[in-house]
Design a protein around this nucleic acid. Structure first.
Length: 292
DNA sequence: AAGGCGTGGAA
DNA sequence: TTTCCAAGCCT
């Protein structure tokens, strides 16, 4: 049985060997916890913005137990402006679970990892593979885009992973675990640096000569429209403003301080309620607001 | 399963 | 200026 796409593996491994970025969550010095923290921070957030926060985070909390010993509000505060602050809450909750249920060690199996808060299919596979060297199919947006172009001949993959896509990725995954882990990070790196969403650098691509999208003349995406998120005037922006007030305040703040963060009262009230529901905000008995 | 959830840099 | 995007998760 031939595997026509297997010719992708060796050139991409060779490319990665020469072009991999030297990131603190890669290589010998990286602990499983460091990898796990990076994976949480990198969910929908660029590497350059993660780097400084990741460094200060690990200096302050070098182990899951160290983070678990603090309040979740300190995690939210240290999260800074990375965005999607519920990730900070979930990372803290995951650290508590690891401390209480896994002896303080980041689990190495996919099933144990995906049971942790904030850990979905991608993050579980990434931690198992990159932190523990387990053989896992790692399917992130970069891998999906590279395979969509090189193998399927389309500019972008579908919104969600389908069976054929997972089968393809599984088929390409090298048989031995260490090589599989390197392959996964290599394809991700290629997608991040060369096979980018906008303006891919095809002349620099190690597999451009066998890319089906290139061979087809790089046809533009013609699938269903990809949803674009509005920002100005949304509840997300309002929540961000409110939470920024709390992050920058040493302790609790009164209601007037929060009201000053957003003019429209109905939306402000809705955002405040949702922040309380999410556990990103706490209302004390004295009527003041603080981080959890 | 489609939509909500932050932020800031690049073009 | 506006638009698009960056290693997803959860409901």
């Amino acid at each position: 049985m031939s595997r026509p796409s297997s010719d992708l593996v060796d050139p991409i491994l060779a490319w990665y060997d020469e072009h991999a970025r030297d990131l603190p969550w890669r290589g010998n010095g990286a602990t499983p916890w460091s990898v796990m923290v990076s994976e949480f921070m990198l969910q929908q957030t660029p590497v350059v913005r993660v780097l400084p926060v990741h460094a200060t985070w690990l200096e302050r909390w070098p182990t899951p137990a160290a983070l678990a010993a603090e309040s979740s509000g300190e995690a939210v505060r240290a999260w800074g402006r990375l965005g999607y602050p519920r990730r900070a809450l979930r990372l803290h909750a995951a650290a508590v679970a690891i401390t209480e249920q896994h002896g303080g060690e980041v689990p190495d199996s996919y099933d144990e990892l995906i049971a942790l808060p904030g850990v979905g299919d991608y993050t579980a596979a990434a931690i198992a593979s990159f932190a523990h060297g387990r053989r896992q199919v790692v399917l992130d947006t970069n891998v999906r885009r590279v395979l969509a172009r090189a193998v399927s001949g389309v500019e972008f993959p579908a919104r969600s992973v389908n069976r054929a896509e997972r089968d393809l990725a599984a088929d390409l995954l090298p048989g031995d675990a260490p090589t599989a882990a390197t392959w996964s990070v290599a394809v991700m790196e290629l997608g991040a640096l060369v096979c980018t969403a906008a303006r891919p650098q095809c002349p620099a691509c190690p597999v451009s000569d066998q890319c089906r999208w290139q061979a087809a003349g790089a046809p533009p995406y013609d699938g269903p429209p990809r949803p674009v998120q509005a920002w100005a005037g949304t509840d997300r922006q309002c929540r961000g403003r409110i939470l920024a007030v709390l992050r920058d305040a040493p302790g609790s703040v009164d209601r007037a301080r929060l009201d000053a963060a957003w003019d429209e009262p109905v939306q402000r009230e809705r955002a405040l309620a949702s922040l309380l529901t999410d556990g990103l905000l706490v209302l004390d008995d004295d009527g003041r607001y603080r981080l959890p």
